[in-house]
Nucleic acid binder design. Structure first.
Length: 350
DNA sequence: CATTCGTGGCC
DNA sequence: TGGCCAAGAAT
Protein backbone atom coordinates (compact mmCIF):
# COMPACT_ATOMS: atom_id res chain seq x y z
CA UNK A 1 0.00 0.00 0.00
CA UNK A 2 1.30 3.43 -0.90
CA UNK A 3 1.04 6.47 1.34
CA UNK A 4 -2.18 7.72 -0.23
CA UNK A 5 -3.85 4.36 0.28
CA UNK A 6 -2.77 4.28 3.92
CA UNK A 7 -4.10 7.79 4.50
CA UNK A 8 -7.39 7.11 2.72
CA UNK A 9 -7.91 3.92 4.68
CA UNK A 10 -7.27 5.83 7.90
CA UNK A 11 -9.61 8.58 6.70
CA UNK A 12 -12.46 6.18 6.00
CA UNK A 13 -12.27 4.93 9.56
CA UNK A 14 -11.59 8.18 11.38
CA UNK A 15 -13.02 11.12 9.49
CA UNK A 16 -15.25 13.57 11.29
CA UNK A 17 -18.85 13.83 10.22
CA UNK A 18 -18.93 17.39 8.92
CA UNK A 19 -21.88 19.00 7.13
CA UNK A 20 -20.01 19.80 3.91
CA UNK A 21 -18.98 16.17 3.62
CA UNK A 22 -22.56 15.20 2.87
CA UNK A 23 -22.56 16.88 -0.53
CA UNK A 24 -20.60 17.26 -3.73
CA UNK A 25 -22.53 20.35 -4.78
CA UNK A 26 -19.75 22.66 -6.01
CA UNK A 27 -21.51 25.71 -4.57
CA UNK A 28 -21.63 24.20 -1.09
CA UNK A 29 -18.04 23.00 -1.37
CA UNK A 30 -17.01 26.52 -2.37
CA UNK A 31 -18.81 28.07 0.61
CA UNK A 32 -17.23 25.59 2.99
CA UNK A 33 -13.73 26.08 1.61
CA UNK A 34 -13.86 29.85 1.89
CA UNK A 35 -15.24 29.69 5.42
CA UNK A 36 -12.47 27.29 6.41
CA UNK A 37 -9.66 29.52 5.14
CA UNK A 38 -7.50 30.20 8.20
CA UNK A 39 -10.44 29.15 10.33
CA UNK A 40 -10.95 26.17 12.62
CA UNK A 41 -13.58 23.62 11.72
CA UNK A 42 -15.32 24.06 15.08
CA UNK A 43 -15.70 27.78 14.47
CA UNK A 44 -16.85 27.42 10.87
CA UNK A 45 -19.63 24.84 11.16
CA UNK A 46 -22.44 27.12 12.35
CA UNK A 47 -21.47 29.81 9.83
CA UNK A 48 -21.59 27.25 7.03
CA UNK A 49 -25.04 26.04 8.03
CA UNK A 50 -26.38 29.58 8.37
CA UNK A 51 -24.86 30.58 5.05
CA UNK A 52 -26.27 27.80 2.89
CA UNK A 53 -29.62 28.20 4.60
CA UNK A 54 -29.85 31.90 3.79
CA UNK A 55 -28.12 31.68 0.41
CA UNK A 56 -28.76 28.17 -0.97
CA UNK A 57 -27.84 29.08 -4.55
CA UNK A 58 -25.36 31.25 -6.43
CA UNK A 59 -28.19 33.41 -7.72
CA UNK A 60 -29.64 34.13 -4.28
CA UNK A 61 -26.18 35.10 -3.05
CA UNK A 62 -25.58 37.32 -6.07
CA UNK A 63 -28.75 39.25 -5.32
CA UNK A 64 -27.88 39.83 -1.66
CA UNK A 65 -26.63 43.12 -0.26
CA UNK A 66 -23.09 43.38 1.04
CA UNK A 67 -24.41 44.51 4.39
CA UNK A 68 -26.51 41.36 4.76
CA UNK A 69 -23.63 39.09 3.73
CA UNK A 70 -21.26 40.81 6.15
CA UNK A 71 -23.88 40.49 8.86
CA UNK A 72 -23.95 36.74 8.31
CA UNK A 73 -20.15 36.71 8.44
CA UNK A 74 -19.99 38.80 11.62
CA UNK A 75 -17.63 37.30 14.18
CA UNK A 76 -15.83 35.00 11.74
CA UNK A 77 -13.05 37.44 10.83
CA UNK A 78 -11.22 38.11 7.58
CA UNK A 79 -14.26 39.92 6.25
CA UNK A 80 -12.78 40.38 2.79
CA UNK A 81 -13.77 36.74 2.29
CA UNK A 82 -17.43 37.73 2.53
CA UNK A 83 -17.05 40.75 0.29
CA UNK A 84 -15.13 38.68 -2.25
CA UNK A 85 -17.74 35.93 -2.21
CA UNK A 86 -20.49 38.38 -3.07
CA UNK A 87 -18.38 39.70 -5.93
CA UNK A 88 -17.53 36.15 -6.97
CA UNK A 89 -21.18 35.08 -7.04
CA UNK A 90 -21.85 37.78 -9.63
CA UNK A 91 -18.83 36.60 -11.64
CA UNK A 92 -20.13 33.05 -11.58
CA UNK A 93 -23.62 34.15 -12.56
CA UNK A 94 -22.55 36.39 -15.42
CA UNK A 95 -19.36 34.84 -16.80
CA UNK A 96 -19.98 31.18 -16.03
CA UNK A 97 -23.75 30.98 -16.39
CA UNK A 98 -24.29 30.36 -12.68
CA UNK A 99 -22.12 27.24 -12.56
CA UNK A 100 -18.85 26.96 -10.65
CA UNK A 101 -16.27 26.21 -13.38
CA UNK A 102 -14.87 22.67 -13.47
CA UNK A 103 -11.51 23.68 -14.86
CA UNK A 104 -8.52 25.39 -13.29
CA UNK A 105 -8.00 28.31 -15.67
CA UNK A 106 -11.56 29.57 -15.18
CA UNK A 107 -12.07 28.84 -11.49
CA UNK A 108 -8.84 30.62 -10.57
CA UNK A 109 -10.23 33.82 -12.11
CA UNK A 110 -12.87 33.99 -9.41
CA UNK A 111 -12.34 36.53 -6.64
CA UNK A 112 -11.30 34.89 -3.39
CA UNK A 113 -10.38 31.58 -5.01
CA UNK A 114 -6.63 31.02 -4.93
CA UNK A 115 -4.48 28.00 -5.58
CA UNK A 116 -5.66 26.05 -2.55
CA UNK A 117 -9.40 26.69 -2.90
CA UNK A 118 -9.31 26.07 -6.66
CA UNK A 119 -7.69 22.69 -6.12
CA UNK A 120 -10.02 21.84 -3.25
CA UNK A 121 -13.19 22.53 -5.24
CA UNK A 122 -11.93 20.84 -8.40
CA UNK A 123 -10.85 17.71 -6.55
CA UNK A 124 -13.73 17.38 -4.09
CA UNK A 125 -16.64 18.48 -6.28
CA UNK A 126 -15.38 17.48 -9.73
CA UNK A 127 -12.84 14.65 -9.09
CA UNK A 128 -10.04 16.54 -10.83
CA UNK A 129 -6.49 15.56 -9.74
CA UNK A 130 -5.25 18.88 -8.31
CA UNK A 131 -3.27 18.61 -5.06
CA UNK A 132 -4.20 20.86 -2.17
CA UNK A 133 -1.42 22.40 -0.11
CA UNK A 134 -2.73 24.02 3.06
CA UNK A 135 -1.25 24.33 6.52
CA UNK A 136 -2.03 20.69 7.25
CA UNK A 137 -0.36 19.40 4.10
CA UNK A 138 2.72 21.56 4.67
CA UNK A 139 3.06 20.08 8.13
CA UNK A 140 2.35 16.44 7.25
CA UNK A 141 4.62 16.31 4.22
CA UNK A 142 7.49 18.34 5.66
CA UNK A 143 7.60 15.96 8.62
CA UNK A 144 7.09 12.82 6.60
CA UNK A 145 9.94 13.66 4.22
CA UNK A 146 12.10 15.50 6.74
CA UNK A 147 11.91 18.75 4.82
CA UNK A 148 13.81 21.10 7.16
CA UNK A 149 13.75 24.37 5.22
CA UNK A 150 11.12 27.09 5.76
CA UNK A 151 7.74 26.23 4.28
CA UNK A 152 6.18 29.67 4.67
CA UNK A 153 8.11 31.14 1.75
CA UNK A 154 7.56 30.45 -1.94
CA UNK A 155 10.50 28.11 -2.38
CA UNK A 156 9.38 25.89 0.47
CA UNK A 157 5.78 25.91 -0.62
CA UNK A 158 6.80 24.93 -4.15
CA UNK A 159 8.93 22.05 -2.90
CA UNK A 160 6.05 20.67 -0.83
CA UNK A 161 3.63 21.23 -3.72
CA UNK A 162 5.76 18.99 -5.93
CA UNK A 163 5.66 16.25 -3.32
CA UNK A 164 1.90 16.66 -2.95
CA UNK A 165 1.45 16.43 -6.71
CA UNK A 166 3.48 13.25 -6.86
CA UNK A 167 1.54 11.74 -3.96
CA UNK A 168 -2.02 12.43 -5.12
CA UNK A 169 -4.37 9.59 -6.00
CA UNK A 170 -5.56 10.57 -9.47
CA UNK A 171 -8.52 8.24 -9.26
CA UNK A 172 -9.74 9.61 -5.92
CA UNK A 173 -8.27 13.10 -5.65
CA UNK A 174 -11.03 14.56 -3.47
CA UNK A 175 -10.87 11.73 -1.00
CA UNK A 176 -7.08 11.81 -1.02
CA UNK A 177 -6.92 15.56 -0.41
CA UNK A 178 -9.41 15.46 2.43
CA UNK A 179 -7.64 12.46 3.94
CA UNK A 180 -4.26 14.16 4.17
CA UNK A 181 -5.79 17.36 5.58
CA UNK A 182 -7.84 15.44 8.13
CA UNK A 183 -4.74 13.49 9.10
CA UNK A 184 -2.91 16.77 9.68
CA UNK A 185 -5.78 18.10 11.74
CA UNK A 186 -6.28 15.04 13.96
CA UNK A 187 -2.95 13.15 14.14
CA UNK A 188 -0.05 15.10 12.62
CA UNK A 189 -1.21 18.27 14.37
CA UNK A 190 1.11 21.05 15.57
CA UNK A 191 1.50 19.05 18.78
CA UNK A 192 1.31 15.63 17.14
CA UNK A 193 0.03 12.28 18.36
CA UNK A 194 2.89 10.19 17.06
CA UNK A 195 1.99 7.18 19.19
CA UNK A 196 -1.21 6.85 17.17
CA UNK A 197 0.45 7.55 13.83
CA UNK A 198 0.21 4.92 11.14
CA UNK A 199 3.08 6.52 9.25
CA UNK A 200 5.62 6.83 12.07
CA UNK A 201 7.77 4.00 10.78
CA UNK A 202 8.38 5.84 7.51
CA UNK A 203 8.35 9.38 8.93
CA UNK A 204 11.78 10.99 8.61
CA UNK A 205 11.11 13.62 11.28
CA UNK A 206 9.94 10.96 13.71
CA UNK A 207 12.94 8.72 13.00
CA UNK A 208 15.33 11.65 13.51
CA UNK A 209 13.45 12.89 16.60
CA UNK A 210 12.88 16.34 15.11
CA UNK A 211 9.09 16.28 14.95
CA UNK A 212 8.91 19.33 17.22
CA UNK A 213 11.26 21.27 14.89
CA UNK A 214 9.36 20.70 11.65
CA UNK A 215 7.79 22.46 9.83
CA UNK A 216 10.37 25.24 9.90
CA UNK A 217 8.93 28.72 9.58
CA UNK A 218 10.49 32.14 9.29
CA UNK A 219 9.71 34.59 12.05
CA UNK A 220 6.66 36.77 11.89
CA UNK A 221 6.72 40.54 12.20
CA UNK A 222 5.89 41.94 15.59
CA UNK A 223 2.41 43.26 16.29
CA UNK A 224 1.75 46.94 15.84
CA UNK A 225 0.06 48.65 18.77
CA UNK A 226 -2.78 51.07 18.08
CA UNK A 227 -4.85 53.16 20.48
CA UNK A 228 -8.56 53.43 19.73
CA UNK A 229 -10.92 55.75 21.60
CA UNK A 230 -14.53 54.86 20.87
CA UNK A 231 -17.27 57.31 21.72
CA UNK A 232 -20.64 55.87 22.50
CA UNK A 233 -22.50 59.05 21.65
CA UNK A 234 -25.96 58.95 23.11
CA UNK A 235 -28.97 61.12 22.43
CA UNK A 236 -31.68 59.77 24.71
CA UNK A 237 -32.35 56.28 23.33
CA UNK A 238 -30.42 56.71 20.12
CA UNK A 239 -26.75 56.46 19.34
CA UNK A 240 -24.48 56.94 16.36
CA UNK A 241 -22.52 54.46 14.30
CA UNK A 242 -20.63 54.76 11.04
CA UNK A 243 -19.46 52.53 8.23
CA UNK A 244 -15.73 51.90 7.93
CA UNK A 245 -15.70 52.64 4.20
CA UNK A 246 -11.96 53.12 3.90
CA UNK A 247 -8.87 50.96 3.61
CA UNK A 248 -8.10 49.61 7.07
CA UNK A 249 -9.08 46.71 9.27
CA UNK A 250 -12.78 45.79 9.26
CA UNK A 251 -13.47 47.35 5.87
CA UNK A 252 -17.19 48.07 5.35
CA UNK A 253 -18.05 46.93 8.85
CA UNK A 254 -19.66 49.37 11.29
CA UNK A 255 -18.36 50.87 14.52
CA UNK A 256 -18.66 53.92 16.74
CA UNK A 257 -17.19 57.39 16.26
CA UNK A 258 -13.49 56.84 16.74
CA UNK A 259 -10.45 58.91 17.60
CA UNK A 260 -7.16 57.09 17.17
CA UNK A 261 -4.15 58.37 19.09
CA UNK A 262 -0.49 57.57 18.59
CA UNK A 263 0.07 56.84 22.26
CA UNK A 264 -1.91 55.94 25.33
CA UNK A 265 -4.03 58.94 26.15
CA UNK A 266 -7.22 59.51 28.11
CA UNK A 267 -9.50 61.79 26.12
CA UNK A 268 -11.89 62.61 28.90
CA UNK A 269 -11.27 66.34 28.41
CA UNK A 270 -11.89 66.28 24.70
CA UNK A 271 -15.34 67.85 24.99
CA UNK A 272 -13.68 70.95 26.36
CA UNK A 273 -11.33 71.25 23.40
CA UNK A 274 -11.67 72.40 19.83
CA UNK A 275 -10.86 68.88 18.73
CA UNK A 276 -14.31 67.70 19.63
CA UNK A 277 -15.92 70.29 17.42
CA UNK A 278 -13.52 69.57 14.57
CA UNK A 279 -14.37 65.91 14.56
CA UNK A 280 -18.04 65.82 15.43
CA UNK A 281 -19.17 69.31 14.44
CA UNK A 282 -21.09 69.29 17.68
CA UNK A 283 -21.50 71.83 20.43
CA UNK A 284 -20.12 70.88 23.78
CA UNK A 285 -21.86 67.74 25.04
CA UNK A 286 -23.71 67.59 28.31
CA UNK A 287 -21.28 65.11 29.81
CA UNK A 288 -18.63 62.54 29.00
CA UNK A 289 -17.83 59.48 31.04
CA UNK A 290 -15.08 56.86 30.89
CA UNK A 291 -16.60 53.40 30.51
CA UNK A 292 -13.81 50.83 30.30
CA UNK A 293 -10.67 49.74 28.47
CA UNK A 294 -9.98 46.49 26.72
CA UNK A 295 -7.30 45.06 24.46
CA UNK A 296 -8.33 43.43 21.20
CA UNK A 297 -5.79 41.18 19.51
CA UNK A 298 -5.52 40.81 15.75
CA UNK A 299 -2.90 38.89 13.84
CA UNK A 300 -0.71 41.90 13.13
CA UNK A 301 -2.15 44.51 15.47
CA UNK A 302 -2.93 44.95 19.11
CA UNK A 303 -5.79 47.39 19.56
CA UNK A 304 -5.80 49.07 22.96
CA UNK A 305 -9.30 50.43 23.22
CA UNK A 306 -11.02 52.87 25.55
CA UNK A 307 -14.77 53.37 25.48
CA UNK A 308 -16.43 56.63 26.49
CA UNK A 309 -20.04 57.54 26.94
CA UNK A 310 -20.94 60.98 25.61
CA UNK A 311 -24.40 62.39 26.20
CA UNK A 312 -25.60 65.04 23.83
CA UNK A 313 -28.76 67.12 23.81
CA UNK A 314 -28.95 67.95 20.11
CA UNK A 315 -28.54 66.00 16.92
CA UNK A 316 -25.00 65.52 15.66
CA UNK A 317 -24.32 68.08 12.96
CA UNK A 318 -22.94 65.66 10.47
CA UNK A 319 -21.78 67.64 7.45
CA UNK A 320 -19.91 64.68 6.01
CA UNK A 321 -22.93 62.45 6.36
CA UNK A 322 -20.67 59.97 8.10
CA UNK A 323 -22.85 58.83 10.97
CA UNK A 324 -26.00 56.76 11.16
CA UNK A 325 -28.42 57.31 14.03
CA UNK A 326 -29.90 54.08 15.30
CA UNK A 327 -31.64 52.62 18.34
CA UNK A 328 -30.51 49.56 20.27
CA UNK A 329 -33.10 47.43 18.52
CA UNK A 330 -31.52 48.15 15.14
CA UNK A 331 -28.07 46.87 16.10
CA UNK A 332 -28.66 43.42 14.73
CA UNK A 333 -29.16 44.86 11.25
CA UNK A 334 -25.57 46.08 11.08
CA UNK A 335 -22.34 44.06 10.90
CA UNK A 336 -19.89 44.99 13.65
CA UNK A 337 -16.41 43.68 14.37
CA UNK A 338 -16.22 41.68 17.56
CA UNK A 339 -14.50 44.47 19.43
CA UNK A 340 -17.72 46.46 19.12
CA UNK A 341 -20.02 43.50 19.36
CA UNK A 342 -18.58 42.60 22.72
CA UNK A 343 -19.38 46.09 23.94
CA UNK A 344 -23.07 45.41 23.30
CA UNK A 345 -22.89 42.58 25.80
CA UNK A 346 -21.42 44.70 28.58
CA UNK A 347 -23.27 45.82 31.63
CA UNK A 348 -22.97 49.41 30.51
CA UNK A 349 -24.90 48.90 27.32
CA UNK A 350 -27.68 46.83 28.83
C1' DC B 1 7.23 38.54 -2.43
C1' DA B 2 6.46 40.24 2.24
C1' DT B 3 2.64 42.14 4.40
C1' DT B 4 -2.02 42.51 5.68
C1' DC B 5 -6.35 41.05 6.19
C1' DG B 6 -10.00 38.43 12.55
C1' DT B 7 -11.05 35.58 15.84
C1' DG B 8 -10.56 31.99 19.16
C1' DG B 9 -8.24 27.94 21.17
C1' DC B 10 -4.28 25.99 23.03
C1' DC B 11 -0.22 25.56 26.06
C1' DT C 1 0.93 35.41 29.48
C1' DG C 2 2.32 35.83 24.97
C1' DG C 3 3.14 33.36 20.94
C1' DC C 4 1.60 30.07 17.72
C1' DC C 5 -1.70 28.59 14.63
C1' DA C 6 -6.12 27.44 11.90
C1' DA C 7 -9.01 23.61 4.92
C1' DG C 8 -5.30 31.22 2.40
C1' DA C 9 -5.94 35.25 -0.80
C1' DA C 10 -5.04 39.81 -2.38
C1' DT C 11 -1.88 43.25 -3.03
Amino acid sequence: MNISNILQKWYAANKRNLPWRQTKNPYYIWISEVILQQTRVAQGISYYLNFIKKYPTVKLLANASEKDVLNLWQGLGYYSRARNMLYASKQILEKFNGKIPDNYSQIIEIKGIGKYTASAILSIAYDKPYPVVDGNVLRVLSRLYGYAKPVNINAGYNDIYKIAAKLIDKKNPGNHNQAIMEFGALICSPVPYCENCILKLICVAYKNKIIDKIPVKTKKAKQKIRYFNYFFVQNKNSFYIRKRNFKDIWENMYDFPLIETKKKELLINIINSDKWYEIFQQIKPKKIKYINSIVHILTHQKIKTTFYNVQIEHELIDTNNAYIKITKKEIKNFPFPNLINQFFNTQFFN
